[in-house]
């Protein structure tokens, strides 16, 4: 890990939605030029974390710094300036459905640069080539498979060569081949241009294979952090259950309920 100041510094983060506390005192550092993974069971607010870093949500307490700027204290315009340095790959791809693949990737370039059309075309084709979809540039998002849509979204996320790319569940719901393709793409991208990457995922094996640093969060707290090896060797029973995908352990298989016999016999109150 590099010794320089981390790109993203989260301190004492607390976030709640209504009465529900989603994060309670989370500290996290995301080192420059590395791949940091945030893992945890579904519903622990991993996507919320990315939205907090991107400034789409504001924390109830604590601070989030990106490249020395406190994200949650920025004004509207400064925040939009900051976001030009971030790319985000949404779980659904979030492609604009009324634009073709080419126009989707060209969109951030057209919005934020004053490059001539021929230059934009070259850049877009290069980005599409990088994700292997140069031939699909005329297709509309509705004509793409889920894996292809995610690759187009990746090309769009890196169109402006951001300092940091955030991946929201990049592997969820993919068949093994497209999953392997995405793992390779993210890996190659980091080898080639070394942006800082944050991957939010619960696909243990794939994530561990590309991440340099892993944070495991559960119930609003960081329960483990370290390299994939260190996490795998963790002594925590819960982390072991999560990393190895065991059905029962500290996280119960059953949703809290009365005893089965009581429920079956006294069904009246249900």
């Amino acid at each position: 890990m590099s010794k320089e100041e981390p790109l993203v510094k989260i301190r004492g983060l607390r976030f709640q939605r209504g009465a529900r506390v989603i994060f309670d005192g989370v500290d996290m550092d995301i080192a420059r030029g590395s791949v940091t993974a945030v893992m945890g069971p579904s519903g622990t607010g991993k996507t919320t974390l990315l939205k907090l870093i991107g400034g789409q949500l504001r924390p109830s307490a604590g601070s989030i710094e990106f490249n020395g700027q406190r994200v949650h204290e920025l004004g509207h315009n400064q925040l939009f300036e900051l976001r030009k340095q971030m790319g985000m790959l949404f779980q659904s791809g979030a492609l604009l459905t009324d634009l073709s693949v080419f126009d989707n990737v060209a969109y951030p370039l057209r919005e934020h640069t004053h490059l001539p059309a021929s230059m934009i075309r070259k850049l877009v084709l290069l980005k599409l080539e990088a994700v292997g979809l140069r031939g699909a540039r005329e297709l509309m998002p509705a004509e793409l498979s889920g894996g292809m849509a995610r690759r187009v979204a990746l090309a769009r996320a890196i169109a402006l060569d951001p300092m940091m790319v955030m991946y929201d569940e990049p592997f969820t719901g993919q068949d093994p081949i497209s999953m392997a393709v995405l793992v390779k793409l993210i890996h190659d991208l980091n080898e080639a241009s070394r942006p800082t990457s944050v991957i939010v995922s619960h696909d243990v094996a794939e994530t561990a294979s590309i991440a340099g640093q892993i944070y495991v969060i559960s119930e609003g707290k960081v329960v483990a952090k370290g390299t994939p090896e260190a996490i795998a060797a963790s002594s925590s029973e819960w982390v072991q259950q999560f990393m190895n995908g065991l059905p029962d352990g500290p996280a119960r298989f059953h949703y809290p309920a009365r005893a089965l016999a009581e429920d079956l016999l006294g069904g009246r109150h249900a």
Partner: peptide, 17 residues
């Protein structure tokens, strides 16, 4: 639907209001 499919969020993260 643009909201549900995260297209609005996506625009926001592309620094487009």
């Amino acid at each position: 639907l643009m909201k549900a499919t995260e297209q609005l969020s996506g625009l926001e993260m592309m620094a487009v209001d």
